[in-house]
């Protein structure tokens, strides 16, 4: 089997009923979700996954729900493929909590509780002022960054919030200035296309400064351990260091994510040849294809896709 990086999904691809088929059909997934649910104090995970009242539209529910599904799948992979050579872990944004828990850098209980706090604080910031995000496709990165810098010079909040792949970066900021940026990018031809994203807030920008500050004391109190497997940080593009986990996660909320750099790091330094994304949507798998076509890609999000993946691995 190829050296593998496990990827933990971020926000944006959640869907009603996600994980529930696994909860019905797999005892270990069931047990894992029940345990994770018991650590949450403000809501019931299974109610949120069922999404009957559109709970999954809100970041405060989305974040723990996505991480719980990813961790349930991770437990199954460990049970069924104990010899899978996992060389590194990457989570996108909130997915970093799943990655750090999987690597043993934080306990499930403390990790889920910190994530619940993060999600809830970010929900508050998201509703503070009108903000937006826009995907910039086939960008001239330097030109787009220059446009953001210029618009931010007047005091407006706008920045590149996600460096997802060479073909896609995302801008976040106040709605009015995002509109200006879209117009400017189009006029300068600094990208092939700019598309506004249907999100509830401009994540990974200064608009989440309050949440970031309030997370600092919570994260500093966590009991952290040396990661058993390298977890590559969105913020630094390098492995999380035990001593700086809290600090890096505080910064992460207001800093751009560098997913493409994280993948490249594992290819270059750990010889990763395959990725396995655990969680809804498969967006990270799409990015991997845009980053390096030579990497073999797998994505698992439900019972059926898991069976297909397992059969393929066991056939090798």
């Amino acid at each position: 089997m190829e050296k593998t990086a496990i990827l933990f999904s971020g926000q944006g691809s959640q869907y009603s009923g996600m994980g529930l088929d696994l909860y019905q059909k797999d005892a270990l997934f069931h047990e894992t979700l029940d345990r994770l649910n018991s650590y949450l104090s403000s809501f019931d995970l299974l109610t949120v996954l069922a999404n009957e009242k559109h709970e999954l539209d809100q970041t405060k529910f989305q974040q723990p729900a996505i991480v719980a599904v990813s961790l349930g799948l991770q437990a199954m992979v460990q049970r069924d493929l104990p010899d899978l050579p996992v060389a590194g872990l990457i989570g996108l944004s909130l997915g970093e909590y799943a990655a750090l828990i999987s690597a043993g850098a934080m306990t499930e209980e403390e990790g889920m509780q910190a994530l619940e706090a993060r999600a809830s604080l970010m929900q508050v910031d998201a509703s503070q002022e009108p903000s937006a995000m826009a995907a910039v496709l086939k960008p001239d990165v330097a030109a787009v960054e220059a446009i953001c810098t210029q618009l931010a010079a007047s005091g407006a909040i706008i920045a590149v919030s996600n460096y997802n792949s060479p073909k896609q970066i995302v801008l976040g900021g106040q709605t009015a200035v995002i509109q200006q940026a879209i117009a400017e990018i189009t006029e300068q031809g600094a990208a092939k296309r700019v598309v506004e994203l249907p999100v509830s807030g401009a994540f990974h920008t200064q608009l989440f400064q309050t949440a970031s500050e309030k997370m600092a004391p919570i994260l500093t109190k966590l009991t952290v351990s040396e990661p058993q497997i390298p977890v590559i940080s969105n913020t630094t593009g390098k492995p999380f260091e035990k001593e700086r986990i809290a600090e890096t996660l505080v910064q992460q909320i207001v800093s751009p994510t560098h997913f493409a750099d994280c993948v490249s790091y594992l290819v270059k330094n750990e010889g990763v040849e395959m990725t396995l994304e655990l969680g809804p949507g498969g967006t990270l798998t799409q990015f991997v294809k845009q980053i390096d076509r030579k990497i073999k890609r797998h994505h698992v999000e439900d019972y059926d896709s898991y069976q297909v993946f397992l059969a393929e691995m066991r056939g090798n």
Partner: peptide, 23 residues
């Protein structure tokens, strides 16, 4: 496909066929 995928498809068609396609 999500809406971004549709745009990616349009981008590839534009490049391969030397066209301009509106979103």
């Amino acid at each position: 496909a999500d809406s971004l995928d549709v745009f990616e498809i349009m981008n590839e068609l534009e490049d391969e066929l030397d066209l301009k396609l509106e979103a």
